[in-house]
Amino acid sequence: MIWPAIWRLPTPMSLRAGNEKRPPPGTFFDAATIDILTTSSIRKLQKYVPDVLLDVRRFRPNLLIDDDAQRDDVRERDWIGAVVGIGSAKFTVVREAPRCTMIAAEQAADIPRHSPILRAIVKEMKQALSVYCDVKRPGFVKLGEFIFRQEA
């Protein structure tokens, strides 16, 4: 089973305002409504655990941004305090997402337990991977949409 059950959400995903605190049925949020992760962050982490296949499902982001580049830094850290738009939705980037032991746990038959992942994030990446966001303007996000940044 993949958690959260994002395949049950409407496509394109309708995003609700950050002041609406009830999550959609069948979902669960750790600390924020939206968690955004970039592929450059995954590439950076991969440097520290080269023997591990990093399945993005392990990190449970709501949105994975493929930066289509060879950069390997945590690009989303630069967005903290800014507003990012994807499709017709806008998000206020609030803070880094601290990581806990859940990312090292077995999550599905094909995602085994692997503690070095968390150790690498704690030691090399300040225990954070991805960013937490609030929904500033509800809207629709479709696969392939571009992301844009503006100051808050």
Rank of each mutant, 00 (worst) to 15 (best):
S115V: 01
V135M: 14
Q107T: 02
R119W: 00
E124C: 09
R119Q: 09
H114E: 14
V122D: 11
D134R: 15
A128R: 08
I103D: 00
I111A: 04
Q107C: 07
I121M: 11
H114K: 11
I121R: 05
S130F: 10
V122M: 12
Q107I: 00
A108L: 10
V135Y: 12
I103A: 01
Q107S: 06
A108D: 15
I103S: 07
Q127G: 02
D110Q: 10
A109V: 10
C133N: 00
C133I: 00
E124S: 11
L129R: 09
A104R: 01
A104S: 15
K123A: 07
Q107Y: 01
V135S: 11
A120D: 09
L129E: 07
L129Q: 03
C133R: 06
D110A: 04
E124F: 09
C133M: 12
R113H: 13
P112M: 08
Q127D: 07
L118Y: 08
P112I: 08
A109H: 14
Y132V: 04
A120R: 06
I103N: 02
D134N: 15
L118F: 04
P116C: 09
I121Q: 02
M102P: 03
V135C: 13
K123E: 13
D134P: 06
K123M: 05
V122R: 12
S115W: 04
C133T: 05
I121S: 02
A105Y: 10
P116L: 06
S115D: 12
A109L: 11
R119T: 10
R113E: 06
A108V: 08
V122Q: 11
D134W: 13
V131N: 04
Y132K: 11
H114L: 02
Q127R: 15
L118S: 01
V135G: 05
Q107M: 04
V135Q: 08
A105D: 08
Y132D: 02
M125N: 05
I103R: 00
I111V: 10
I103H: 04
M125A: 06
H114Y: 12
E106Q: 14
K123Y: 08
L118V: 07
Q107H: 03
Y132Q: 13
A108T: 12
L118M: 02
R119F: 01
A109I: 07
V131I: 05
L118H: 09
K126M: 01
M125I: 09
E106Y: 02
Q127N: 15
Q107E: 00
K126D: 14
A104W: 00
L118A: 03
I111H: 05
P112Q: 13
A109E: 14
M125L: 15
K126V: 00
A108P: 07
V122H: 13
Q127I: 09
M102Q: 03
I111T: 10
D134Y: 11
M102L: 13
Q107A: 07
H114R: 08
I121N: 10
H114M: 09
C133Q: 07
K126C: 03
H114C: 14
A120M: 10
Q127Y: 06
V131D: 09
S115F: 02
A109T: 15
K126Y: 12
R113L: 03
I111L: 15
K123R: 10
E106V: 10
L129W: 13
A128P: 00
D110T: 06
Q127F: 10
Q107P: 01
Y132S: 00
A128N: 14
E124Q: 15
R113N: 10
